[in-house]
Amino acid sequence: MVPLANAAGEPAPHRDGRFHNQASLPQDGVLKKLRIGLKYLFLRKPPQTRPATPISLQPMTREQVLDAPDHSMWRLGHSTVLLKLRGRFFITDPVFAERASPVQWAGPLRFHAPPLALDQLPPLAAVVLSHDHFDHLDEQAIRHLAPRTGVFLTPLGVGDLLMSWGVAPAKVRQLDWWQESEVEGVRFVATPAQHFSGRGLLDSNRTLWASWVIIDGDVRVFFSGDTGYFDGFKQIGERFGPFDLTLIETGAYNVAWPNVHMQPEQSLQAHLDLRGRWMLPIHNGTFDLSTHGWQEPFERILTLANQAQVRLSTPQMGERVSLDSPHAGQNWWQPRPVRQRGHAKERTMAAR
């Protein structure tokens, strides 16, 4: 199906060879970008930004994934989510690299290995990409997946990068905001986000960024990609909601970039604007991309969701979630109590 313009909204603003957000935002110069990059990505950060011990994962196997029922979903890390719809598999922003960085010898290091290795993924009907930043677009993963994937769905311009890496042009579908495409009976709509793009100092906003609406019959999922809070959430919710599950960016926020990443309070409001039934926070638990504690996004959004009576799903990486009936999950990020060896009686006997 050829992507078709949707009359529900305006295309992304584009002028002077660059894309722009719906709202006019301050533009950072090259020196400021370099300073932010060095400070938050490469220089030493507070120790609480990374877990002190290995985090708890749910082991996965290729066979379990293949045998799982339809409408299954798994978090593999950060914003990488594997979906099973109509017997086919789809993945968002597949990042399997050790570092979210232009180089693999420096930059934010993973907290955990992916619960399912890249070479164990099932054949993919589609890869769905939100934008070109390194924590969302992993060149080596794309090169590996190119012969094993039917379609790559990207915002405008990102597909050109994929083709330069060897992805066949016939597999690439580049969409503007409010355009849509169908893959194996599943409908994908590229919707607005408030963010920016670029993989270097001089290519800012040459490619588009987007969120995605995913529709399989009566099941509707929203994938935020990266975004600041903006009025577009209400428009998306009015046009495509209610959503059974919203995958909402909740992490890597900072006062230094308030317009392009959301604080947890804004993430919750975005979910409400979208008319979501369950919220699942993503963009956390894998890389230290800011200076807040790695557990903080989970704790803050859990408190906020309880106060607002919002149903929140926080599965472990690798834990299956049913899109038909999501579950709350456990607070797996919280420290587990240290168990003493032996029973009290044994310790008493040993003391004699």
Rank of each mutant, 00 (worst) to 15 (best):
A8D: 13
G9T: 15
G9C: 06
G9E: 14
P13V: 05
P13W: 11
K33P: 06
K33E: 12
P47A: 13
A52F: 08
L57Y: 02
S72A: 08
V81H: 01
R86C: 06
F89V: 07
F90Q: 10
I91A: 00
P94Q: 07
A97I: 11
F111C: 05
H112R: 14
A113D: 14
A113F: 09
L118E: 11
H136D: 15
Q140L: 08
I142L: 11
V158P: 02
G159L: 02
M163H: 03
R173V: 07
E180D: 13
L202H: 12
S211Q: 01
V213E: 10
I215V: 15
D216T: 03
V219R: 15
V221Y: 02
F222I: 12
G225Q: 08
D226M: 05
F233Y: 14
D244Y: 03
T246P: 00
M262F: 03
Q263N: 13
Q269N: 06
L272W: 09
L274Y: 00
R277G: 09
W278M: 01
P281Y: 03
F287E: 04
F298G: 00
I301Y: 05
L304E: 01
D324E: 11
P326I: 09
A328D: 04
G329F: 04
W333I: 07
R339Q: 15
H343R: 15
E346G: 07
